[in-house]
Structure formats: structure tokens, C-alpha cells
Design a protein around this nucleic acid. Structure first.
Lengths: 245, 245
DNA sequence: CAATAATTAAAACAGGCGTTTCAAACGGTG
DNA sequence: CACCGTTTGAAACGCCTGTTTTAATTATTG
């Protein structure tokens, strides 16, 4: 079975949940995501991973380094789970934008309740620690750069890069609210409404239209979208690249 | 003897709370805001408030009830610090929207770095506990309702209430990103750019324009404001209602 | 002033935390 | 099998936590 002879320094990307290191990483991610760094305990993590408490020290050194590795593990896994869409040459920028927003909402909100990987990353975004810089450079910035390039293509040089970035943040912000403050949104908006129009698919259409209308690439917003059933049957334009998990 | 006649003006730079209960509430708010419920310790809070550890139990019972009271205290204080603007009859909806957005950004971001009250409320929004419901009903919902009524007035009945609420969330989301993920935004955007266009005043103009353009009440976005406009002297339209803290 | 209640101070409590220790169990290799 | 580095298990070590106890101090009142 290959050489497993790197106990401490080896960032083994093994996804198999049968080795203790992988089990600890997975369990720690879930605990950290749910309770935060301080409130999560090594004992609970080890219980969940069915290993002894000493294993954390053996494989990771201490709790802090385990946390760093957990965040890395989380965004690596999430990158595989929901990869960026790829477009053939000549794809209209409008379609690219719609695909990107759909992909981002899919990544943030998921079809079912969001996986622990996203919630752990969210914690790091909201209250950054040492793990944040790597998360930004390896995960967030690449995605943001793609968004900006789409917007730049869309506006055909009408805007300076800073202005493009500001538009990009507007797009991200609209999606981000649902992820970060989802509970409060759920308290402000009636449940039926949430289900009808505040779901990943309809939200992607709406955010894209909102942005395009603001840029003058579409008619203004009060276009009728609310009446159509828009259930998963006939609609769902270009959402199929994404394989849920 | 001497006891503690003078409450040591040093470590607590907060308001004129000379009663122990108020000092504890203020110190607890700062500690909870900075470290979260779990990581903040009663001993640190009491040191900051210059009271004995037993005082928390005496005045509040236990740590959890102190936290609840802290959140309540925070949003009550913040409501006084940055009250909603008031408009005379006949004020155009466009101006109301700009004022509201400016007020919200002022409340969220502040002129200087944001006060602990906002950061504590943010924690409660991101990871709700028992204190969240009251925060939503007494603080967030009233503000959101005002925003929705402005948007409804603006669109003159072209949209259904659910659609108005969705527009409202778009407005809030754009501002919220800067507050909740400000550190990451600061890593994505060059510092000069932050100072030039991602500041409360220019952001208020931009978010308002973005929304108005999307609704067809304004020309599309690539208007003016390339940069270095609106720096110091000029502009600042209708930002005077707000008395800072 | 004396008596009673309210508040504060210091110390101690029990329990949980991250971490360490050390010996036992394992697994591949002569 | 005997060897030896790697991995696991159970217990213990300090330390810090929220909370409580007990006594001293202050404030309030008759």
C-alpha cells in the first residue's frame, strides 16, 4: 500500500475516510463550522472521528494547526465539488454572467442545506484568522477575478478596473447576504416567499437581471418573473453544468 | 481604605456609565463583540468594567443572561446614535433612498472604525442565538420596512410586495458585504481604491445609482465618477442629517 | 446612632479544556 | 520469531472557566 511514512508534515489529500487523519480533518471541519474555533473541543472532534484525543497532537501538533488544515481541506474539497463553469469561445458575456451567478449561488447555498465546508469558510471570512489569507488567494480571488473579467467583457471597456471591481462586489454582495445572514432573511421574509423567489435558481436569474439592467444591457427590472411556475420542469436555463453532491 | 471612589477612567473609554451595571454592560458588549460569546470571559469583562467577578452573578444571574442584555443594550444605544432620517412631506423618493442608504452605511461602517455595538449585532446576525429575535423585531425589521416603503413609493406600484422586498435585500446586501466581509474585501481591493471609492459617502451614491439604474429611474451605470471626484470639499449631498457619534 | 438591607471583595469550588505522558498494540522486515 | 519504528489508548497534568460561598463594606432607614 504505497508508503504512508509521512505522519506529521504530509498534507496527504487522501479523501478516503478510513485513515485517521482524514477522519479527524472531516470531523474537525464539521465541529469548527458549527461551533467556531473556541467552542469546538478536541474531545468532541475525536469522538466524532472515532479516534483518541492524542491523535490530534500526533497528526497535527495542536488545535490551531488542525484548524488551519481544516480550512484548507474545506476549500479544496469545495473547489472540487462545485468547479467553475467553463465556456466555449464566443459564449456571450451575458450568459457567462448568468452561469457564474448561478454557480456562485449554488456554491454558497447549495441545493440542500449548505455543507460544512462553506460554513467553515464563511466563519473565516467573517472573523479572519491565520487561515484567511490562503483562503482568499487560493479560493476567493480566483473566483472574483473571473467575475471581473466577465463584467469587463460585458461593458466593453466602458469602465475602469476599479469600477468593474465595485460592480463585482455588488453582485457578490447580493448573493452573500443570503448565505451570511440567511437566518435573519428568513425572519424578515415570509416562508412561502422564500421558497418561491428566494431560491438559488430564481435568485440567479434575478441578480443577473438586476445587474444587467443597472448596466443598461437589459430593460429595467419590473419584468414579470413572479407568475411563471419556474419549477424545475421546463426552466432551469443552463444550470446543468453543476453536479450537486 | 480609599476603596474605589473613582472608577478609574483609564481602561474604559466608553460613555458616562458610573453605575456598575452599566459598566458591566458596556464592557461585556465590547468583549462579546470582539471575541464572541464563548471566547469572552467573565473575568476579562469584569476587569474591563473594574468590578468583581461576583458582580456579574449579582446583577445578571449568569453569563448567558448578561449576553442577552448586552445585545439589547447594543441595539438600543445604536438606535440613538444613528437614528433614521426624517423627511418632510413631498420629499422625492429618490432622495429618500439616497438618504436611507447613506444612513445605513453610516450605521454599519461608521466614519471611523465601527463601534462595538454594530460588531456585536453582526455576530448575532451571523450566528443567531436567543437574542436574535428581539434584535430583528426591534431593530432590523423597522429599518427594512422603511426601505421597502421607499422602494414601493419609488416604483409606484409597478412591483408586488415580494418583489419590492427582493430589491430591498439587494440594496442591503451590497452594503452588508462591506461590513460583514470587510477584511476580505480589503484583501481583494487595493488600499487606494478602498479609500477612493469604497467609503461610506461614495458608496452611498454608488449603491443608490446602481439600484435606480436597475429600476430604470436613472441612466445606466457607467456615469461619471471615474475617480478623484467628490473627494473632500464638494458633493456630500444630503449627508447632514446624521450626527455622528 | 443603631439596625437592617444592599452591594462589593476575596477566595474557593467543581468541571472542562488543550496538551502530555507512557506503555501497549500494531505491522512490516530481517 | 525477534526486532523496531509507527500508531493507538487510557490516564493524568496544569490551567482556566463559570459560578458560588462567605465575610466585609457601604448605603439606607427608624
Amino acid at each position: 500500500m504505497a508508503s504512508i511514512s509521512v505522519p506529521k508534515a504530509g498534507p496527504v489529500p487522501s479523501e478516503g475516510h478510513d485513515d485517521p487523519r482524514g477522519r479527524i480533518l472531516s470531523a474537525a471541519g464539521q465541529e469548527f463550522a458549527e461551533k467556531g474555533f473556541e467552542a469546538a473541543t478536541i474531545r468532541d472532534i475525536c469522538t466524532l472521528a472515532t479516534v483518541n484525543v492524542a491523535a490530534v497532537n500526533y497528526y497535527f501538533g495542536d488545535k490551531h494547526r488542525l484548524y488551519i488544515e481544516s480550512v484548507r481541506h474545506a476549500h479544496e474539497e469545495r473547489s472540487q465539488q462545485v468547479p467553475l463553469p467553463e465556456w466555449v469561445d464566443g459564449t456571450p458575456a451575458v450568459k457567462k454572467l448568468r452561469d457564474f451567478v448561478g454557480n456562485m449561488l449554488q456554491r454558497m447555498l447549495g441545493f440542500d442545506h449548505p455543507p460544512w465546508q462553506v460554513r467553515l469558510m464563511l466563519r473565516e471570512i467573517l472573523h479572519p484568522t491565520d487561515a484567511c489569507r490562503e483562503l482568499v488567494e487560493d479560493y476567493i480571488r480566483p473566483h472574483f477575478t473571473v467575475l471581473c473579467s466577465i463584467l469587463e467583457e460585458l461593458t466593453e471597456g466602458e469602465m475602469s478596473p476599479p469600477e468593474v471591481r465595485r460592480i463585482g462586489l455588488s453582485v457578490v454582495g447580493q448573493c452573500f447576504l443570503y448565505r451570511a445572514a440567511g437566518d435573519v432573511v428568513g425572519m424578515l421574509i415570509p416562508p412561502i416567499e422564500i421558497k418561491n423567489i428566494h431560491n438559488p435558481v430564481d435568485l440567479a436569474d434575478y441578480v443577473t437581471s438586476f445587474c444587467l439592467a443597472a448596466l443598461g444591457k437589459h430593460p429595467p427590472l419590473p419584468i414579470e418573473v413572479s407568475q411563471k411556475k419556474s419549477l424545475s420542469a421546463a426552466s432551469g436555463p443552463s444550470d446543468q453544468d453543476i453536479k450537486s453532491n
